[in-house]
Amino acid sequence: MAILSVESLSKSFGGVQALQDVTFCVETGHICGLIGPNGAGKTTLFNLITGFYAPDSGAVHYRGRTLQGLPSHRIVGLGITRTFQNVELFSSMSVLGNVMVGRHVRTRCGFFRAILKTRGARAEEAETRNAALELIRFAGLKGDPEAPAADLPFGWQRLLEIARALASEPSLLLLDEPAAGLNAVETAALGDLITKIRDRGVTVLLVEHDMSLTMRVSDRVVVLDQGRLLAQGAPREIQSDPEVMAAYLGRPKEAGNA
């Protein structure tokens, strides 16, 4: 069953057609790789799914309901959470604090209960803390959870962003180029983490430039090129798809092709 289906989605910015009539599905429990050259429309697609942009036409269905017109914070509440291509941590807060913010949609303490410090509010706070600490361990972050998030090495900041996203208990996790800026060892560990996330029951939509990572962990791969859907299928099919190769490597000359 598809957890997410994107139906003939289009979006343009001024004269630039960022996405044109894109249709595909993400199956529940899969890791779905989304690849394409720069400017293919991958990040635009993320922004449309998460409600940061509104589409010009088309629709996004999540678990059978349309996400059209929902503000981004409601979409997170429904179970879709994203990370950012350029790490967007809360730099004035600790590692633990960052992940605790991720629990926002799953907790409900408001101004009054915070001021009165009710029993419920304190219990919720302790619960939030424990859940966050568990996720920090799960993501493989070591060291002091009270350390400022901004002091972490870059690779760990990526992991922290994933831990923070997981704290909102998503059913569908959108990762925007999580391996960008990571070295080979870190990338391998990231691959394992993504697989572990799927094994937790979270469907993953992975935008990534690192081909070997995408091909290794994805159950299915969707290829975008210049705003259009180019191909979709199992990683092996995609790797041997002539259209995909052409998009990435350029077309052979007409004469050579004949």
Binding site: S72, H73, V76, F90, M93, V101, H104, A165, S168
Partner: peptide, 10 residues
């Protein structure tokens, strides 16, 4: 710190 990330956290 980051309004975009805050929105992304719901």
């Amino acid at each position: 710190d980051s309004e975009a990330a805050a929105r992304a956290m719901g």
